[in-house]
């Protein structure tokens, strides 16, 4: 037996119509930008599309089988792992420490904020090109600077040496990302309860203890949000590698993003490129969900500035 409602049917219908109307834009956006592309990608994943043939043959799971047995995929995945570990931890640590330093400093806050955030405002392509010049083995100033301080023996073609190329590109990415992390954490630090920090100081807590036990718990949701963004960026990294090395030399800096691109657009294997792109999504989603859930739980527990 249904519970009787006091709301007249006319009003209920009006409310339902309003609800649909309000949800419609989001539904349309989701359908256009998520559902349709995802269905499209799933279709291309099970055919062998070369970018030209309008009726590509159905190949079932062949593209997936090939991907898992392709040594180039695993090599690219390995580079992604390096990127995720170093490219996430370095900016998070540097950004956190820089933010705390700026926050606790008495002077020059706006200037430091500007200086640190500036790299993040530059287009990735411009950053890649300029750092590419800096790493140039003949005229680049990185080698010149090493020579000037008596470390000329370390000079090398940073982007052409398979042992250093991925780390040289990573250094550029870290430089570009630190400002973003600094700014977001700095905003969170502004809402930190200063009395707790002062109390800890009076109780004899040193700087590291205050950071770990007082500051970090208060900014944890924001910290996790930045961590999620940076981490997911590690799975989908493409532009800076594409600009600086193109995935070379000889695949030394290939990541899933560049491998998907070269498969799809240089070798005309759109379907295989699609499968690789799906792998990036599949790998990134669990991390994103896990960190979002953690962030939400902390917020519900009343933690966070």
């Amino acid at each position: 037996m249904r519970a009787a409602s006091n709301v007249p049917p006319v009003t209920r219908r009006a409310q339902a119509r309003l609800g649909i109307l309000l949800a419609l834009p989001v539904a349309i956006v989701t359908a256009v930008f998520f559902v349709f592309p995802m269905l499209n990608a799933l279709y291309y994943a099970v055919v062998d599309f070369d970018g030209l043939d309008p009726t590509p043959p159905f190949v079932g799971l062949d593209n997936f089988t090939e991907m898992f047995t392709d040594s180039a995929t695993w090599h690219a995945l390995g580079n992604n792992a390096i990127w995720i570990v170093i490219g996430t931890s370095a900016p998070m640590i540097i950004g956190l420490l820089t933010a705390v330093l700026i926050w606790s400093g008495r002077r020059g806050g706006p200037l430091y904020r500007l200086l640190f955030f500036l790299p993040f405002m530059l287009p990735g392509v411009a950053i890649g090109i300029v750092w590419g010049w800096m790493y140039d083995p003949v005229n680049g100033w990185v080698n010149r600077a090493l020579g000037a301080v008596g470390l000329g023996g370390l000079s090398r073609g940073w982007l052409g040496d398979p042992d250093t190329a991925i780390f040289a590109v990573l250094a550029t990415a870290i430089w570009a990302t630190c400002g973003f992390v600094t700014m977001i954490i700095l905003s969170a630090l502004r809402n930190v309860d200063a009395e707790l920090v002062d109390a800890a100081r009076i109780d004899g807590a040193n700087a590291a203890q205050r950071l770990w036990h007082i500051l970090l718990p208060q900014i944890m949701p924001v910290f996790l949000m930045v961590l999620t963004l940076t981490l997911v960026g590690g799975f989908s990294v493409f532009d800076i590698i594409f600009i600086m090395t193109g995935g070379g030399p000889a695949d030394a800096t290939e990541v899933l993003g560049t491998y998907a691109y070269s498969s799809a657009f240089e070798l005309n294997r759109i379907s295989y490129g699609t499968v690789l792109a799906l792998l990036i999504t599949i790998l990134a989603v669990p991390f994103t969900i896990m960190l979002n859930r953690l962030q939400r739980r902390l917020s519900l527990q009343g933690l966070g500035a």
């Binding site: 590419g132 790493y135 140039d136 083995p137 003949v138 005229n139 090398r156 073609g157 940073w158 982007l159 052409g160 040496d161 190329a165 070379g248 030399p249 000889a250």
Partner: peptide, 10 residues
């Protein structure tokens, strides 16, 4: 030096 680090234009 290190040809794979040198662009065509450079």
């Amino acid at each position: 030096p290190s040809p794979t680090a040198v662009s065509y234009d450079n």
